[in-house]
């Protein structure tokens, strides 16, 4: 009896296995056909049926069959490379300011722009049709969009501060002669005041003597600073140039986004809808061929 039961369950198991294998073969055959005909939309559906049902067919709660989908897990890099051709072609029109570098098979770095100086901006996730932006770089861009309302650029405050510092240093350099004259005068005064010092020195005299000493010390420290001021100004100018370059890069990026999307918000919306928009564009392409069988 036990054996019979076991046999029965063995039959069920065999059926189950058979069923699973049929499913797997079916999946692989569909996959094979889709790849052979470059039906990218179909491939995306096979790769993530749940998302496809939700975002393209608007059918909720379609679960993914992990047991078949895991069959192509070791092919993700190759699939990514394969699917990138059409995706990057599409992105070239939808996001004309992004450039991609395949640094290893199926892995793509995003560069923002082809301008004189540009930023590496994150990675392109081909299989999930999404941008993985570098969060630090993205935050800078977001911030500079916010600053537009204040009529400022990302590094405006820093540049202003350094420019003021340079003005102050230049002033020190320009007033060297006046400092020398003032010092000579103060030293004379000090001599004069010191002659009245001694054990019976009045508190008023003491105070003015201290004032003169303080003023002389201040002059001396200014003098010391002015000796290195020229070099500091030069160094600061390099820093300002670097900050201005970053400002320029960000303004190019802002300009590109506005030219293409109208606003930063619309850019972000487009990013969120990228999967649906891209697959819809593939749908259009395939209508003419209609080898989809649906």
């Amino acid at each position: 009896m036990a054996t019979e039961q076991h046999q029965q369950s063995a039959q069920e198991v065999a059926a189950l296995i058979n069923n699973q294998i049929v499913n797997k073969i079916d999946f692989l055959q569909q996959f094979k056909a889709a790849v052979a005909d470059h039906q990218d939309r179909r491939i995306y559906q096979l790769l993530d049926n749940q998302r496809y049902a939700k975002e393209i067919e608007h059918r909720e709660q379609q679960s993914n069959n992990q047991s078949v989908m895991s069959l192509v897990d070791d092919l993700v890099d190759q699939l990514s490379h394969y699917l990138s051709v059409n995706l990057i072609d599409y992105l070239g029109k939808a996001y004309p300011f992004f450039y991609y570098e395949e640094y290893q098979t199926g892995h793509y770095r995003i560069y923002f722009g082809n301008w004189w100086d540009r930023r590496e901006f994150g990675e392109l996730d081909v299989l999930n049709v999404r941008f993985l932006f570098n969060q630090d770089e993205y935050a800078k861009l977001q911030k500079s969009f916010e600053l537009v309302h204040e009529n400022k650029r990302y590094n405006s405050d820093k540049i202003d501060k350094i420019s003021q510092e340079n003005d102050r240093l230049q002033d020190l350099i320009d007033h060297q002669r006046e400092r020398e004259e003032r010092r000579a005068k103060l030293q004379d005064q000090l001599k004069e005041v010191s002659s009245h010092s001694g054990i019976w020195e009045s508190s008023k005299n003491k105070e003015s003597r201290q004032n003169i000493v303080d003023a002389l010390q201040k002059l001396e420290s200014e003098e010391q600073e002015s000796r290195t001021a020229a070099q500091t100004i030069k160094d600061n100018e390099q820093v300002v140039l670097a900050l201005s370059k970053e400002n320029t890069i960000l303004s190019y990026e802002q300009k590109s986004i506005i030219d293409t999307f109208g606003s930063f918000e619309d850019f972000e919306l487009a990013n969120r809808n990228l999967y649906a928009s891209y697959l819809a564009s593939l749908n259009d392409d395939e209508k003419q061929v209609n080898t989809d069988g649906e």
């Binding site: 082809n114 301008w115 004189w116 100086d117 540009r118 140039l241 201005s244 370059k245 400002n247 320029t248 303004s251 190019y252």
Partner: peptide, 14 residues
């Protein structure tokens, strides 16, 4: 030149 272009409508490309 790149920095100067920020004030104008022209772009400097690599």
């Amino acid at each position: 030149l790149f920095v100067a272009t920020a004030e104008f409508d022209y772009m400097l490309l690599n």
